[in-house]
């Protein structure tokens, strides 16, 4: 049988990859996708612990997280379209009208 720790490791690594994506890429779409990765990592952790505790509530929690992720993606993409409309690109490191 697979040790549950493996799943936790996988989730942690996925979280790290997502975090790397957020800080490394300047394209806002990729950043959004990276955030999805981080949310999925958290979800995997929840489900693993749900399995460990044999607790189906974790599944309901994960369900909520998926719904939240969907809403977040929609809002994020909407804001992105707004940005694109104003500037014609979605590079996050060029969004520096406001600073200091």
């Amino acid at each position: 049988m697979i040790p549950p720790t493996y799943f936790l490791y996988l989730a942690a690594l996925l979280f790290a990859v997502g975090a790397f994506g957020v800080i490394l890429r300047r394209n806002a779409i990729i950043m959004l996708m990276s955030i999805e990765l981080m949310l999925n990592a958290a979800n995997l952790t929840i489900l693993t612990f749900g399995r460990i505790h044999a607790d189906p509530h974790a599944h309901a929690f994960a369900f909520m997280v998926i719904a939240v992720a969907a809403a977040e993606a929609a809002v994020g993409l909407a804001i992105l379209v707004g940005i694109f409309r104003n500037r014609r690109n979605v590079n996050i490191d060029e969004l520096t009208l406001m600073k200091y």
């Binding site: 975090a19 949310l39 958290a42 809002v75 804001i79 707004g82």
Partner: peptide, 22 residues
């Protein structure tokens, strides 16, 4: 400025949400 502020707020906020969830 408004959409730029929203984008920044959203990005950093979503990372924070992911951290919270984790």
């Amino acid at each position: 400025k408004s959409s730029e502020g929203a984008m920044k707020y959203f990005l950093v906020g979503s990372v924070a949400s992911a951290v919270l969830l984790y």
